[in-house]
């Protein structure tokens, strides 16, 4: 099968998604983390738009625009405001050392490649070879949630996972039905608002956003 240039661009975009997730994992500073998170939203929108073009699925353009506005601008901006209001400028504190986390991440990519091989054989879509990368992005975001101490980095991990799921949907089935996608997008927006309230409540009650302190009070 001849691979067109645009299809190769989809591959490049998928590789960029993977790189951005790794950058999120490796980040030490809160502000840089949020910048990478915004970049992830933009890359996600770009990937959706590319897939929409390659596979000729015009609905995906709408989800691309939705992703760009919501995940590339609005959510990072909200998190940014929360970080500023909470006065968190210090470094992100991972539970596991960064280099080890990255190596675990590389192993996760290998694992998801192995797992998704049979799925790729069944699929007929042009984006079938990005399924492994999409799955890897989901697992890596989950790894980020697990290995962080602060509530806010865990939330960034959660939102990154949502981005990765969106990407998975795009690469496995050319996206979810538009109605579902819009619904999920607004759910995430509301979730981010609720998280923001939670942060303030947690800090008011426990004087820190460090989740280990919550366990100590039991």
């Amino acid at each position: 099968m001849q691979v067109t240039l645009l299809q190769q661009w989809v591959g490049v975009a998928a590789a960029m998604m993977l790189l951005v997730v790794f950058a999120l994992l490796a980040q030490r500073h809160m502000h840089a983390l949020l910048r990478w998170f915004a970049l992830q939203g933009i890359v996600l929108a770009l990937t959706s738009a590319l897939v929409a073009n390659v596979a000729d699925v015009p609905e995906l353009y709408i989800s691309a625009i939705l992703a760009l506005i919501l995940k590339g601008v609005l959510l990072p901006w909200m998190l940014w405001r929360i970080v500023i209001n909470l006065g968190m400028h210090r470094e992100v504190e991972p539970l596991v050392n960064v280099s080890v986390t990255l190596l675990i991440g590389a192993a996760l990519v290998l694992f998801s490649f192995y797992v998704s091989l049979p799925i790729e054989k069944l699929s007929q879509l042009v984006t079938r070879n990005t399924i492994a990368i999409a799955l890897a992005c989901v697992l890596l975001s989950m790894l980020m949630m697990i290995t962080r101490r602060k509530a806010i980095t865990q939330v960034v991990g959660f939102l990154a996972m949502e981005n990765a799921l969106f990407f998975t949907a795009t690469s496995t089935t050319y996206g979810m039905p538009l109605l579902v996608e819009i619904g999920v997008a607004f759910d995430v927006l509301i979730a981010a608002l609720v998280f923001g309230l939670f942060f303030f409540q947690i800090r008011k009650t426990f004087d820190s956003l460090n989740l280990e302190d919550l366990e100590d009070r039991q």
Partner: peptide, 26 residues
């Protein structure tokens, strides 16, 4: 420095994996 070199190693591994994932199967 080990972290920096770990990054280089990670990039190389990612290169290898993306080669398998994106370029071999197609």
């Amino acid at each position: 420095v080990p972290e920096y070199l770990g990054l280089a190693f990670l990039l190389a591994i990612l290169g290898m994996l993306t080669h398998y994932i994106l370029e071999v199967g197609v």
